[in-house]
Design a protein around this nucleic acid. Structure first.
Lengths: 392, 392
DNA sequence: CGTGATCCTGCAAAGGTTTGCAATGAAGTA
DNA sequence: TACTTCATTGCAAACCTTTGCAGGATCACG
């Protein structure tokens, strides 16, 4: 497979000499419990002793074994983050926000990718269950009932999915879809397609619902296309279908699909936005880099990550699992407050949407920007003057 | 922060009833050791007993506590994957490949992001050390000596960095940079800039070295610009500097910077590739989506992920850490074979490079591209006829 | 001097699992 | 029948840490 082995040596490396609390105790002449307290409850140990112990620990390179600690405290100070597809640029900002928020609270985040596979999702929750204090489930693809069931195994916070009885962080894609449709209708489009995403996606259902209602209200016809893979290839694959359908505008499940679709249409010789307008969802960085720049519904991914971590930790603190009392907890039931947070979305108008067949004719040359509210304008940097000026 | 609290209820949820090996033992009327063996050494237990135990386990919803198991076996069946920046599209393919490879071997992967911060890197290795069997360090930003030191705490495999004595997976960016420079020189460029990445990046040093040599060999002048942040903003930030420097071609540290640079040049009214040619490194998906499509050095990210996991697991199997013998291992030293693998890179020529000031005049319309050996080829869509036709 | 109170420290159990060793019983061999 | 072998299971220690409890020392106060 095109690789060349440059070197291959066998060396005597100092093995990982695992230094435990016992070694430190021996070295500093105190009992192991004192060493333990030096780290987990310093105020309980004599300052002199403390410095001695710390010195020895430093000397020996001792580091508390978090796994062993977790075994008895029931808290690992880790949180799991399960993601449908790391390659989707929608997620990295969420991941980073979650990580930074977690770090502030002295938690570490373990990310895992499921490849949009519900089975992998379930398996990962199980694998993570005992190694983390809670799991953030982002855009899950499994069923609500399975999620509820898993939530009895490990505290869960769900992102981009509404599960009653569980803490959820939602983005108002309904509102977003509505704005998008209204925007398109306002531009004079009356025949619009909705490019659906994965069938099991909550976001997908919400968008269909809201977009349908908005189209009806605006007197436009909405064609549902899908389900499709929420990727560029998923988008470009339906280009032909879009063209045949004769719609003048498309709202895609996400930016990746929108971009793929534009590519596909381009390949078919269909120009965007002159012949077909395209709107995405997410506002990933990429949507500002493609040509035409993508009109899209911006979702607050960073805020979602932060909020989710907060909700998880809050819930966690209230109910420390695996308490010392051991077996006593039989079906005791823990009071758990579950909140659902809805984050706002915003329509960002760029260059992939333009006037449709029913646009009111432009006034000769009054407004610097024709009839259609927006012409490519191509705000390489400044932009600003974009989103307003909608006619009709 | 623009969010609306939709619901907030307090409910009685069945708490996580932790069912242990003991519960299963009680239920099936055998000793816990038999239950343990049922899972970890099935051939040692009577088939009849086995099915009974399994039935009870299934019934109670028992799952082995991996943390506890790890405590005694010394193997967690997890591997850690430390990444400089998840938002860089270079990494997801690597992550996915590593995950899939690990899954085949019954391992799980925990990904962590360091935000290009060496301190975070070190801290993460420590945090992961006892919870994983080994760590993949991707594009590390810390010093070699620190890496060596950390490798005594937990088995390490380093990607995109050469550390003597440690297993490394490298990509031949030297060869890649050479090809890129040769390509540019062949196109008639004599004044080329190298857009450097992070100072502490091995890749960065390799590129400088190889590009410098290739430029000298080709009679071109190479200007070093940087270090810069390996991101789009890092790229667009130096656009002005590039213009002032008067070079006719640029080799960027990675695709993200190349794309940012093109954006920045575009904003300054400098056209690519007509006035300046740009080459990136990585061949991320995005490089096929921007206009012009990016000429770039493709790196085998998937192969790197797979190889790294293989190397780690192989090394791990040879030397199971924390063996039962406890204290006996004092400075015993474990024979550890360390190989270094070099993966090939490939220059992919697209539309962001074109003839330079010293190009041999194109024959009227014979070859689609001037002097350069390669024509767009461009598997993407048509478009093809883009970058050429430049006179002079 | 007696009585608490306060600080510090040690003891030992606990957490869930694995595993070397020994015990049991049955089957096979001489 | 006596002895060996084998399969199956139980026992208990070990992994590393935390933590309730109790003991010892010191000190202040009455």
């Amino acid at each position: 497979m095109g690789h060349t082995c440059v070197t291959a040596t066998t060396s005597d490396e100092g093995a990982a000499v695992p230094v435990t609390i016992r070694d430190v105790a021996r070295a500093s002449g105190v009992h192991i419990s004192t060493v333990s307290r030096t780290f987990s409850a310093p105020h309980l140990v004599n300052p002199e002793t403390r410095v001695r112990v710390l010195a020895c620990a430093e000397d020996l390179g001792y580091r508390p074994n978090r796994a062993a600690r977790a075994l008895i405290t029931g808290r690992t100070h880790n949180i799991g983050l399960i993601i449908a597809d790391i390659a989707n640029p929608f997620f990295p900002p969420l991941i980073k926000a979650a990580e930074s928020q977690a770090r502030h609270r002295d938690y570490h985040v373990f990310v895992a990718d499921t490849n949009e596979d519900p089975t992998a999702e379930e398996e990962l929750v199980h694998a993570l269950a005992k190694q983390v204090d809670g799991v953030l489930l982002c855009s899950p693809r499994m069923s609500n009932s399975l999620i509820e069931q898993l939530s009895r195994e490990v505290p869960l916070v769900v992102v981009n999915r509404q599960v009653t009885g569980l803490p959820c962080v939602l983005m108002d894609v309904g509102q977003g879809a509505r704005s998008a449709i209204e925007h398109l209708v306002g531009l004079g489009h009356r025949s619009i397609a909705l490019l659906g995403g994965p069938r099991s996606s909550w976001t997908n259902r919400e968008m269909r619902r809201a977009a349908g209602a908005a189209a009806r209200a605006g007197g436009a016809e909405l064609t549902m296309l899908g389900p499709n893979a929420p990727t560029e290839v998923g988008g470009s694959a339906v280009a032909e279908q879009v063209r045949r359908s004769g719609v003048s505008a498309v709202l895609a499940y996400n930016d990746l699909m929108a971009i793929g679709l534009i590519e596909g249409l381009d390949a078919l010789g269909v120009r965007v936005p002159q012949e077909v307008s395209v709107v995405g969802v997410d506002d990933i960085t990429l949507s500002r880099l493609t040509r035409p720049k993508l009109t899209t519904v911006a979702t607050p991914t960073g805020a979602a990550g932060r909020t989710a971590v907060d909700m998880l930790l809050q819930q966690d603190i209230e109910s420390p699992r695996g308490a010392r009392g051991s077996g006593a907890g039989t079906a005791l039931g823990v009071r758990r407050t579950t909140a659902q947070v809805m984050l706002q979305t915003d329509l960002v108008i760029r260059d992939s949407t333009g006037p449709g067949p029913y646009a009111r004719p432009a006034r000769p040359l009054a407004a610097p920007r024709g009839p259609g509210p927006h012409c490519p304008a191509d705000p390489g940097i400044p932009t600003a003057a974009t989103g307003d000026a909608v006619a009709s």
